[in-house]
C-alpha cells in the first residue's frame, strides 16, 4: 500500500473544505480600492443601473458563468473582490454592439462578492455587487 500516508498538506487541504467564509484581507481590499480609483478617477459611484447574473452557489470556482449588463454604459469593469488578484475584466462597447451586456466565465478563489462598475455615456458611474458562494468539491480524481 503506497498511498496510505498523509502529508500535512493533504490534511490541511481537506480541512479547508469545511471553512465557508474567509475574511477579505486588507491587501485585497486595497487592490479593490485601487482598481476602482483607476476606473473612476475618484468620481462618485451610485448603486444600481448594473445587473450581475451569477449562480448563488457555484459548484466549482474554476468556471463560474457570469453576465453583466448596464444599459447605456460605455465601459463595464468586473472585480472579484475576494480573489488574491481582484481584476477580472473590463469591456468597452463600440457602435457595433447591440447592448451593453457581456457573458463570460470567471475564476473565484472562494465565497465572495463580485463587483461590476459601469461608466455611463454621461460620465457618471454606477455599480452593483453579487454574492457567490463557492463550494469546493474535490473528491474522486
Amino acid at each position: 500500500m503506497q498511498d496510505m500516508t498523509y502529508t500535512r498538506r493533504e490534511t490541511l487541504v481537506i480541512g479547508a473544505g469545511g471553512i465557508a467564509l474567509l475574511a477579505v484581507t486588507p491587501a485585497m481590499a486595497s487592490a479593490v480600492e485601487e482598481a476602482v480609483a483607476a476606473f473612476t478617477g475618484g468620481a462618485a459611484v451610485t448603486d444600481g443601473g448594473v445587473e450581475i447574473t451569477a449562480p448563488e452557489i457555484a459548484e466549482n470556482g474554476n468556471v463560474v458563468p457570469i453576465e453583466v449588463s448596464a444599459p447605456g454604459a460605455e465601459e463595464i469593469m468586473v472585480l472579484a473582490t475576494g480573489n488574491p488578484s481582484p481584476p477580472v475584466c473590463s469591456v468597452s462597447f463600440g457602435p457595433g454592439s447591440a447592448s451593453q451586456r457581456l457573458s463570460t466565465r470567471i475564476r473565484l478563489a472562494r465565497t465572495q462578492d463580485v463587483l461590476a462598475m459601469a461608466r455611463m455615456s454621461d460620465g457618471s458611474f454606477v455599480q452593483a455587487t453579487r454574492a457567490v458562494k463557492v463550494t469546493i468539491g474535490g473528491c474522486g480524481g
Binding site: 500500500m1 503506497q2 498511498d3 496510505m4 473528491c139 474522486g140 480524481g141
Partner: peptide, 10 residues
C-alpha cells in the same frame, strides 16, 4: 483512480 485513492487505498 481518484475515487479509489480517496478511500485511502492504493
Amino acid at each position: 483512480f481518484g475515487c479509489v485513492r480517496d478511500t485511502r487505498a492504493e
